[in-house]
Design a protein around this nucleic acid. Structure first.
Lengths: 242, 242
DNA sequence: GCAAAAGTGTTCTCAATACACCCATGA
DNA sequence: TCATGGGTGTATTGAGAACACTTTTGC
């Protein structure tokens, strides 16, 4: 069984990683006017989890997060932001790891290094939904996008981590040019506004939003987009390089 | 020699702590119109360092930071904020720890757990300067306040950590009621303004500053302060409880 | 009374808001 | 030509900046 081999191989890597330290990534995407998060379905369990991993002894924590992201999405040089460390004494990681290991290798459970208490560094990532090619890791059977509003049953304290990531995203929304990472190359003003409304969870005024965005001098107009609808064709925009 | 015993005792604590994870605290105080940072002078070295420590297996990271702060300042329930993790692969911790250990126990150097690579969680703390009773730890011979503008030679990447802490403090200045932690119980408007000017490193207009602070509805006037100077006596203010 | 610093009033500016209008598109 | 949604013009509001003025204190 390849599954067991993979787990054994992984458990043998103990010395490669910094012990009791993990990285969890909240990967945000935007699709169909919805803010989405990429989650992994744990094998044989009715539980989902954030993409995560460990920090190799020879790599920095940011590189570890980039590597984990690349492994789960196929994308390089993703926009990434460290936002908080989760390290309270009563983080319920052990119970979940036990559950996971029971499914795979009950006999290896007692002395494994993964059963220790963990401190986890939270990162959030912004990706172009359409470019992501989700890949589950060896502990999970699938990888799917979920709407922020309809998250499934989550393992560990991952619901809290997602919540904190979203709060951070909201606070830094204006200063971080979030759109340039979450939207495709070109987009309409309505899509950009919809993104902001979704993140902030509040309606914005169409005309004022447009004026404000244009006044920031970060967008340039491309051609018009003819959808076939019986109304004025909107311009497509793109973020300026510089 | 008590010094050596203390170090040996400490090195024997290996299993109590989460390995390769440390906490560094940037303790800000305000005195004589100056923003200050509390630093420790490493024994027999011309180097200063931030108060720091390790996370006990049974405590959360926030509690660890609180414990470290209490040990170095004598104060409980300090205002504390996690601001960033420092974990790049090339953090120059090993060289410094070697220097420190050479001074104390050159023969214990090779296999010690403190010589490993470390990931450090940065916290900043805001304290009432006048209430702090600085105490050095067993690796340091003294504990002193330094002006932000005149920091001494610092070990590790502690200069960078202090810099990042200050940047975070600046950004969150308006939303965090910084004054209520850095100033004594009562203070003049001029002192509050001076604090803001020091943190922001920019002059503010006296009259506009006063109006803005009063309009926030977080201050209450106490009695006037008669200094003996030949001018109008300023009111003393205090932060409202609520 | 005078200098010095505290406190208040008033205008100006600019950006965010709100409301209104014009433009393009396909049926 | 009409409904629909995109784009722009303009009045209003409010916070912050800039300037001026009044008040209090000890000499």
């Amino acid at each position: 069984m390849p599954l067991i081999n993979e787990l054994d191989d992984f458990l043998a890597l103990k010395d490669r990683f910094i012990p009791q330290l993990s990285v969890d990534c909240v990967i945000f995407g935007f699709h169909n006017q919805q803010l989405k998060v990429l989650l992994l379905k744990l094998k044989n369990l009715d539980l989902w989890a954030l993409p995560g991993g460990y920090v190799d002894q020879s790599e920095g924590i940011d590189e570890a997060a980039q590597r984990i992201l690349e492994e789960r999405t196929g994308l390089r040089d993703i926009y990434l932001e460290q936002f908080r460390v989760f390290g309270s004494a009563d983080r319920s990681t052990k119970e979940f790891i036990q559950k996971i290991m029971e499914v795979h290798r009950p006999e290896a459970m007692n002395d494994s290094w993964v059963l220790q208490r963990y401190v986890s560094i939270g990162y959030y990532a912004l990706v172009d939904f359409s470019k992501v090619n989700p890949k589950p890791d060896f502990l999970s059977e699938s990888s799917e996008w979920f709407e922020m509003k309809q998250l499934p049953k989550l393992a560990f304290d991952h619901r809290e981590i997602i919540q904190k990531a979203l709060e951070t995203l909201r606070i830094t929304l204006d200063s971080k040019l979030v759109g340039s990472n979450l939207l495709p190359e070109t987009f309409t003003m309505m899509e950009l506004q919809s993104l902001y409304e979704t993140i902030l969870e509040m309606p914005l005024r169409r005309n004022n939003f447009q004026r404000k965005m244009l006044s920031l001098d970060i967008l340039e107009r491309v051609e018009k987009l003819y959808t076939g609808a019986a109304n004025k064709a909107p311009y497509l925009y793109r973020f300026k390089k510089s």
